[in-house]
Write a protein that binds this DNA or RNA. Structure first.
Lengths: 179, 179
DNA sequence: GGCAGTCATCTTAGTACTAAGATAACTCGA
DNA sequence: TCGAGTTATCTTAGTACTAAGATGACTGCC
């Protein structure tokens, strides 16, 4: 392995995480660049894959979430796929027009509504999902499953940290940053 | 009915790496989900950051590429930021209208054109870049610089693999997959 | 009970792209 | 040198969203 030059000033590792200004921003910059490239490259495959069934990647994301989690409130769906509230309305409208999901009222709160898979939607996602998963495994095949798991752990931390960090403008007290 | 169906038949673990069809797609699926979430969360910060200067993230990406690499042919720029050819035309048009880049002819080939930073563009990116880098370091602060470097390595492999993999539809012989 | 504040969703208008194809320029073999 | 094929960019039409605000519903304090 012969780890290449990877030197850090030997400062107390205890507060390496909590250092105030993250002096050395070069690793973060590089990480962001390659993260964006990887995302764009993979998302292209995902889009092309689900397009065969007349779906966009976001629509597929909704079906997938409902398939794995069951009915979800629109707000929860929004947090899950990280779009704006208008985006959820738009996407659920489209899926409803295709007959794949419906909206159902939430007994405790008349403002809220569930998104629910119709039988057609359920059948479709069940049909699509296995092939999609296989294709994804192939696209991510440059890493072994073990490496993929390590990657997942790091990305999870990264994503959570980024979601926690307040957005620069208008950072009043909103938690999500989505309007 | 918690814990949805997530089971796989237990098969010989010996050829887990080189199995022809990537049986165990669960790690890839999870990796993709958290990768997408992390990307979206971070890109929101990037977009908000550069929006203060009237730029979109893609526009900033072009300025950044030209800043670090010098003049680039539009096609190379396209590969760098992973948009379609029409997208590059659109983005360079916008930056040109803002006076930040210009197009210059490429002596050896009349079809090709360079994108070049104007003095204004150069001044702007020089002004923006340090603060942007610092902000990015903060947004990615959940990982230490060392972890970020490891992440970069894995994502680089991942992205290259994904870019190499042919897109499902219309996979004639195009290498890039961008039209 | 009533009102101020907040919240979940929807609406409207706008934008940043993409897909598909057009156009002009280049390459190369016969 | 011609023409068939390829390539780099641009054009046109369409779409998947976002931003900002509207609307109706809930909450809690008085």
């Amino acid at each position: 392995m012969t780890a290449p030059l990877d030197d850090e000033p030997p400062l107390s590792a205890a507060d390496a995480k909590r250092n105030k200004a993250a002096q050395d921003s070069a690793p973060a910059l590089k990480a962001w660049v390659v993260l964006a490239r990887a995302y764009l490259a993979i998302s292209r495959h995902v889009a092309a894959d689900v397009a065969r069934f007349g779906l966009t990647a976001s629509e597929f994301g909704i079906l997938e979430a409902l398939y794995h989690k069951g009915p979800l409130l629109l707000g929860d769906l929004q947090k899950k796929i990280l779009v704006t509230s208008g985006g959820v309305t738009y996407l659920v409208d489209r899926l409803a027009r295709k007959g794949l999901v419906t909206r159902e009222s939430f007994p405790g709160d008349k403002r809220s509504r569930f998104a629910v898979l119709t039988p057609e939607g359920s059948a479709l996602i069940k049909q699509i999902f296995p092939g999609h998963a296989k294709r994804l495994a192939k696209v991510l095949g440059a890493l072994t499953p073990k490496e993929q798991k390590r990657l997942t752990g790091m990305l999870r931390d990264l994503g959570k940290g980024a979601e926690k960090e307040p957005l620069p403008r208008e950072r009043k007290k909103g938690k999500t940053g989505l309007s």
